[in-house]
Computed example of a mutant assay.
Amino acid sequence: MIILKGDLNEPRLGLKADEISHLGANVNIYIHLACSINLRRPLVEIAKSIIEPTLELAEIALASTSLERFVYISTAYANSHLHHKGEVDTKVTESIYPLRSGGGDSTDLELKDLNTSGTTPEYGINNFPFPYCYAKHLTERLLLDRFREKQAGDSLLIVRPSIIGPALREPFPYYEIRRSAPATNFLAAVVASLSLRMAFSSRLSDPMRESTLDEVPVDLVVNRILMHTTHRSHGIVHAVAGATGRHTFGTLWQKAMTMRRLPWHPRPVWLDVDWHSPLLHNIGSAWVIVGTSFLFEDERVHEVWDRMGEEERAVFPLFMRDAEEFEQVSMRRGRIRNLFEEWLSRKGFPPVLVNFLISRPTL
């Protein structure tokens, strides 16, 4: 293993000419995961950590003498703008959705507008919950164009995970890097909130039961990336929990309330307002998608599963067995306590105060 020290914000990723030459001569598979996960950073800033470095790495890969696969990790929520355009349980397929109402490819024009003015008309017209989602949407299209121009379309694989959660099995059950699992962070915020009322955005008639969260264990995402790469998938594939693995806002809320030690429970209030409305609670603004429901198609993973042998299936499972297994993965009280301990420590409070916020994990 050779580690190259680079910088996403620098031209050519901050790599030296000889390092780039080494990559071009020796690397045949590129897996690009690096980017900012600060979803609400301004578009002009987030473009510098998502769009620009991805195109830089793609250029390096396309110049490689033995390129077999360029794997880009996007997000299933790159198409979250569709929530305001169709059914409340929004179906998202493993394909590209043009942003212009009349269809057609506006990708290069969007990149030009972004570079000159810091935004695009397409971003202004389409209602994305976060700049991050639009940046991923544009990056997918830019990559597809670049690889087609070089007649290398079959070398490009775009993987769209949904919300990444704690591990199902590897390296051990419930494994997660602190602060990296959005649903854990949401639960922690609700458990610790002093509010009596929390306003969330939703266009659903019964958000407590109808809104769903698609959270997929991180090890299943890794397995899908590896197996799609091994079996030479190209194009767009989803890495999601799917229809049977989703759970509702009501389920999440109930988990938070059972962990909470404060003597009152906040009341969730649902408003049919824009995702960016000032009427929303700060938690409702940070996690606006909790009032939505997306059904992410994941048909292509079954093609790979059918080609895998029994030994591969045992080592690299691609699915959860059932929804009950997913619910077990979501039991993360210990991780939430760790977040509170870290927060209290930064504020200079004694760690014992965490017992006033959350109950202890059950063995």
Rank of each mutant, 00 (worst) to 15 (best):
G103M: 06
T248K: 08
D219H: 05
R321K: 14
E56S: 14
H247S: 13
L99W: 02
L204G: 09
T93P: 02
V27G: 10
E149C: 11
P263I: 01
V237R: 12
P98Q: 02
A189Y: 00
L280T: 01
V301D: 08
T258K: 14
T230H: 09
E311L: 10
G14H: 03
I50T: 12
L55S: 06
F294K: 03
D145T: 10
E342V: 04
E52Q: 11
P268C: 12
D322H: 13
M257T: 05
H265D: 15
M208D: 11
P173D: 13
T212F: 13
V354L: 04
M198L: 15
V71I: 15
A192D: 03
N79E: 14
R12N: 13
I51L: 15
E170R: 14
S205V: 13
S155H: 15
I96G: 14
H247W: 13
L33D: 10
K16T: 08
E45K: 04
E215A: 10
V92A: 04
G86I: 01
I236C: 03
D298M: 15
P217Y: 00
F319R: 06
P263H: 04
L295A: 11
L43N: 04
D105S: 08
R267V: 14
G118C: 03
F147E: 01
P351K: 02
G291V: 02
G103S: 08
I225E: 03
E59V: 02
K136A: 08
I51M: 04
R333S: 06
V315G: 05
I60S: 00
R360Y: 14
F186N: 04
Y132L: 05
D206T: 02
Y77L: 07
H234K: 03
R160P: 07
A17N: 09
T65V: 09
G242S: 06
Y132I: 04
D298E: 13
T251R: 12
F147H: 01
R260G: 07
L213K: 00
R300K: 06
R141I: 10
T75Y: 00
S64P: 09
A63S: 13
R360D: 07
P171S: 11
A152R: 15
T54P: 15
F172C: 09
E341I: 13
N115G: 09
H137Q: 08
L353H: 05
T75A: 07
D18C: 09
D145K: 11
L194R: 11
A152D: 13
N355T: 04
Y174I: 10
V315A: 11
L15W: 00
R332I: 09
S36P: 04
E303G: 11
L23D: 05
I289R: 12
F130E: 14
E324G: 07
I31K: 03
G242C: 07
D274Y: 00
S155T: 10
S36W: 01
P263S: 05
D105T: 01
F186G: 04
R335I: 06
I96T: 15
V269A: 09
G348F: 03
W275P: 09
L23A: 10
A241Q: 00
R69A: 08
I60P: 00
F316I: 01
E297S: 15
L213D: 04
H302F: 12
L55W: 00
M208N: 08
L226F: 12
G309E: 03
S66N: 15
T258Q: 12
R232E: 06
